[in-house]
Amino acid sequence: TDVTFHVNGRNLHLKGADEELLRRIEELIRRGADIEELEKAVKEWEK
């Protein structure tokens, strides 16, 4: 799945995201995470 999140005026584009990653990103956004936290979560998922 390709999806782009718009967070605090910045874009986080995910290519090939699975349901697990999407749920994790949505949860972080609900908690008020900043873009750096979201990018870190994506990097951890990519490993």
Rank of each mutant, 00 (worst) to 15 (best):
R24Y: 14
E46L: 09
N11G: 04
K40C: 12
R31G: 13
H6A: 03
E19M: 11
A41W: 08
K43V: 12
L21N: 01
E37T: 09
V3G: 03
L28R: 04
L14N: 00
A41I: 13
V3I: 13
T4K: 05
G16Q: 07
L21Q: 04
L12N: 00
F5E: 13
G9K: 00
I35Y: 15
E19K: 12
N11C: 15
E27H: 08
W45L: 04
E36A: 07
V42K: 03
E36P: 12
H13F: 07
A17R: 02
E20I: 11
E39R: 05
V3L: 12
D34T: 08
V42S: 03
D34I: 06
D2M: 03
K47C: 07
E36I: 06
L28P: 00
K47G: 13
K43T: 09
E20G: 14
A41V: 14
E44W: 07
N11F: 14
E44A: 10
L38Q: 00
A33S: 08
F5N: 14
D2F: 03
N11I: 15
E27W: 09
R30D: 09
L38F: 03
E46C: 06
D34W: 05
F5V: 15
T4A: 05
A41E: 14
W45S: 07
I35C: 02
L14H: 00
L22D: 00
E46V: 10
A41H: 13
V3M: 11
T4M: 08
R10L: 08
A41D: 04
E46T: 12
R24G: 06
V3W: 11
W45A: 05
E39L: 14
W45T: 04
G9H: 02
E20W: 11
V3A: 06
L38E: 00
L12R: 00
L22M: 06
D2E: 07
E19A: 14
G9E: 04
V42M: 05
D34C: 08
A33E: 07
W45Q: 05
R10V: 15
K47E: 11
H6I: 15
V3Y: 15
R31D: 13
G9L: 02
L21P: 00
K47I: 12
H13R: 06
K40W: 12
E20K: 12
E39S: 06
L22P: 01
E20S: 12
A17E: 02
L12F: 15
R23K: 12
I25S: 00
K15H: 12
V7S: 02
L21W: 02
E39I: 14
I35F: 15
E36N: 07
E39N: 06
K47S: 11
E27L: 10
E26S: 09
R30F: 09
V3T: 03
A17P: 09
A41L: 10
K15M: 07
E39F: 08
G9R: 00
I25P: 00
K40M: 14
D34H: 07
L28N: 02
E36D: 11
L14R: 00
T1L: 14
I25V: 09
A41C: 08
H6T: 10
V7N: 02
L12C: 01
L28C: 04
H13G: 01
E19R: 10
L21C: 05
W45M: 05
K43M: 11
L28T: 02
I25G: 00
L22E: 02
T1C: 14
E20A: 13
V7Y: 05
K47V: 13
H13A: 05
V3C: 15
I29K: 01
L12D: 00
R10A: 14
G16V: 05
I29F: 07
L22G: 01
R23N: 08
V7W: 02
R30E: 09
V7F: 03
N11E: 15
I35P: 01
R31S: 13
T1N: 11
I29S: 01
E19H: 10
F5M: 14
F5T: 07
A41T: 13
G9I: 02
L21R: 01
E46W: 06
G32P: 01
R30S: 13
E44S: 10
T1I: 15
R31F: 11
K40V: 13
E44Q: 11
L28A: 07
E20Q: 13
E26P: 03
K15Y: 08
R30W: 10
H6N: 10
V42I: 11
N11T: 15
H6D: 15
A33Y: 12
L28Q: 05
A17N: 03
I25R: 00
E20F: 13
R24H: 14
D2I: 04
E36Y: 06
K47W: 10
K40Y: 12
G9T: 02
E36G: 07
K40G: 11
D34R: 06
E46K: 11
L38A: 03
L28W: 04
L21E: 01
L22Y: 04
N11D: 15
V7A: 02
K40S: 13
R24F: 12
R23A: 10
R24N: 10
V42Q: 03
E37A: 10
E46R: 09
E46G: 11
T1P: 09
L38R: 00
L22S: 03
F5A: 11
R31L: 13
E26M: 13
N11M: 14
T4G: 08
L28V: 02
E46I: 10
I35M: 11
K43Y: 11
L22A: 03
H13I: 14
R24D: 06
D2T: 05
E20C: 12
I25T: 01
L14P: 00
T1K: 15
D18F: 02
E44D: 12
H13M: 07
F5D: 14
W45D: 03
R24T: 13
T4P: 01
A41P: 01
E37L: 09
G16F: 06
E27S: 10
L12G: 00
N11V: 15
D34A: 06
K40H: 11
N11P: 13
E37D: 12
I25D: 00
L38I: 06
L12S: 00
R30L: 10
K40D: 14
G9N: 03
T1A: 11
G16M: 06
A41G: 03
N8Q: 05
A17W: 05
L14V: 15
E44G: 10
N11R: 06
L12Q: 00
E37F: 08
L28I: 03
L14Q: 00
G32Y: 03
V3F: 15
K43F: 11
E19Q: 10
I29T: 01
R30T: 10
I25Q: 00
A17D: 04
E27Y: 10
K43N: 11
R10W: 07
E20M: 12
E27D: 13
E20P: 11
F5W: 01
L38T: 01
E27Q: 10
K47M: 14
L38W: 01
V7D: 05
D18N: 12
K47H: 11
